[in-house]
Design a protein around this nucleic acid. Structure first.
Length: 356
DNA sequence: TCTGGGGTCCTAGGACCC
DNA sequence: TCTGGGGTCCTAGGACCC
């Protein structure tokens, strides 16, 4: 039997949590994100706000111009994390094969839960009901034979949607949709495809393979397989984290100096703490710099395993000094630690916490 | 309109080794 | 004095996702 995959997606998640916790916000346009005068952007908009054209990732200043009656709320990520864990727990009651993609969405492989594909719609309804009953949040669910189809299906009837794509119907379901619907096709690739006369998934599916490969290289075959509804990627409940980072955008652009360096130190402390919590050590350290003109560069280096804030700070400051010029102005700095290893022996034997 | 913060993955080029 | 081919590792940048 073909697989049965669910994609479950909470509707306007951050905004919905705010409306849940603060009843006076219900029915009103709510925009979650940083303040407009501090370069904030929209992290989530309630459906009331979306009617005014407000969208995620939009500058907050623009969002509030589009919807002057909106209530702006600063994000409370810890609260969203709590709610996310509750929802993921509900998913896990149905199957252990849950792959979270972010705080508000996950794939579920329910192949072994349903007797046949026909039973999957009832299970999806049950999932939505349990979600609503236990958390007060609505979710949209897409059901299909693979990840590509399930994910796109969950988007189609938001909010509170349920779309089931029967096995064998993948290609006809996808055909009329814009190429942008496919995972991995963003604005750049969309523009390129449009310039080639390819606007719909159906056109992509039928495009000449060797021509596509000349333009997109190794991505071409993936695009075409997805466009034809073919996707064998498994649901992966456990995915190793590859990096841990933190970054800050300044309210105003600043030169290299004490303020910038103390921010780097602050970010290093934050990242170090998160690594320590996970008992992980980084073998590569990166500094990210965004100039006033939005040009963004990064510099990285290999190190012995560390999650020590002072070491990380010293490294990123060195990296900064390798590129910074006196007249530079920065709008963002970031620290990222990668090549993570777990449970390595600390270099200082006095710090060893377990037998070697 | 003026662009966050958290990530993943891919590519291309250079260094280096045999 | 001129110069191969393959493989691996590392770095920087960019596209993309939520």
């Amino acid at each position: 039997m073909a697989k049965v995959i669910f994609h479950a997606d909470l509707d306007a998640f951050y905004a919905s949590v705010e409306q849940l916790d603060r009843p006076e916000l219900r029915g009103r346009p709510v925009v979650v994100g940083g303040p407009p005068d501090s370069r904030g952007v929209v992290a989530a908009a309630s459906y009331e706000a979306r009617r005014f054209g407000v969208r995620s990732a939009m500058p907050m200043s623009r969002a509030l111009r589009l919807c002057p009656g909106a209530v702006r709320v600063s994000p409370r990520f810890e609260r969203y994390g709590e709610m996310s864990r509750e929802v993921m727990a509900i998913f896990s009651e149905i199957t252990p094969l849950v792959e979270p993609l972010s705080l508000d969405e996950a794939f579920l492989d329910v192949t072994d839960v349903v007797k046949d594909f026909g039973a999957s719609e009832a299970l999806a309804r049950y999932l939505k009901t349990q979600g609503k009953r236990q958390t007060g949040l609505t979710l949209s669910v897409g059901v299909g034979a693979n990840k590509t189809v399930a994910k796109i299906a969950s988007d189609l009837e938001k909010p509170d949607g349920l779309v089931v794509v029967a096995p064998g119907q993948e290609e006809s379901f996808l055909m009329p949709l814009p190429v942008r619907s496919l995972w991995g096709i963003g604005s750049r690739t969309e523009v390129l495809l449009t310039s080639l006369g390819i606007r719909t998934v159906g056109q992509l599916a039928q495009a000449d393979d060797s021509f596509l490969e000349k333009v997109f290289g190794s991505r071409a075959s993936m695009f075409q397989r997805m466009a034809r509804g073919i996707d064998y990627r498994p649901v992966e409940p456990v995915r190793e984290r590859k990096s841990i980072g933190a970054e800050t955008t300044f309210v105003r652009d600043i030169p290299d100096g004490p303020e910038l360096r103390s921010e780097l130190e602050h970010l290093a402390v934050k990242v170090a703490q998160r690594m320590a919590t996970r008992e992980t050590w980084a073998c590569s350290i990166m500094v990210k710099l965004r100039y006033a003109d939005f040009r963004t560069i990064s510099r990285q280096t290999k190190t012995d395993p560390t999650n020590n804030a002072e070491e990380i700070t010293a490294t990123v400051v060195q990296l900064l000094e390798s590129v910074a010029r006196a007249d530079d102005r920065f709008r963002l700095v970031g620290v990222q630690c990668g090549s993570l290893v777990g449970r390595v022996r600390p270099r200082n034997p006095q710090l060893a916490l377990w037998p070697t």
